[in-house]
Amino acid sequence: MIEIRWHSRAGQGAVTGAKGLGDVVSRTGKQVQAFALYGSAKRGAAMRAYNRIDDKPIINHAKFMRPDYVLVIDPALAFTDNITENDKPETKYIITTHLDKTELIAQIPELQDKKDRVYTVDCMQISLDTIGRAIPNAPMLGAFVKVSGMFQLDEFLESMKRVLAKFPQKIIDANMEAITRAYNEVK
């Protein structure tokens, strides 16, 4: 069982990202679960989304989770939200930031002893460059594909195209580019 926790703001697409990831992963024959904990559900409010991935049907419906991956798609939440909550010694962090990795870690005391498990990527800039709006979910998926090593990039992109099939070609292309760039740029 792999468990993932997304830290996001309502409106940044964490729920869509988590469901999209679930959709793509289900096409590889795995069982998935995607859900979210909404606060007051106002755009901009901090919220969390979750994924579970397993080979067997997932019957745990508890919200409590000790995540294997923590995906932070809003740069400020790395500072203000408790991103290390209920983590494990092997939990990996992928954080969107314009800062250099060392610079970021230096400012977040909770990450001091986890340096080798922290990865950074600028999902905001990538989504602005490719999609034209600050929707950092798609690039985060690209970074996750790279860090987790769970999928080949091209097979992930193929599945993602099918998930996005209802959108215009321009939007599909922009998302593919965002995923690919984040895959290549995550450090």
Binding site: G22, D23, Q31, Q33, F35, P57, H61
Partner: peptide, 12 residues
């Protein structure tokens, strides 16, 4: 079905 736990949880 359970609100959110089932209604808003995507699964296979």
């Amino acid at each position: 079905q359970d609100g959110f736990l089932t209604s808003h949880t995507a699964q296979n």
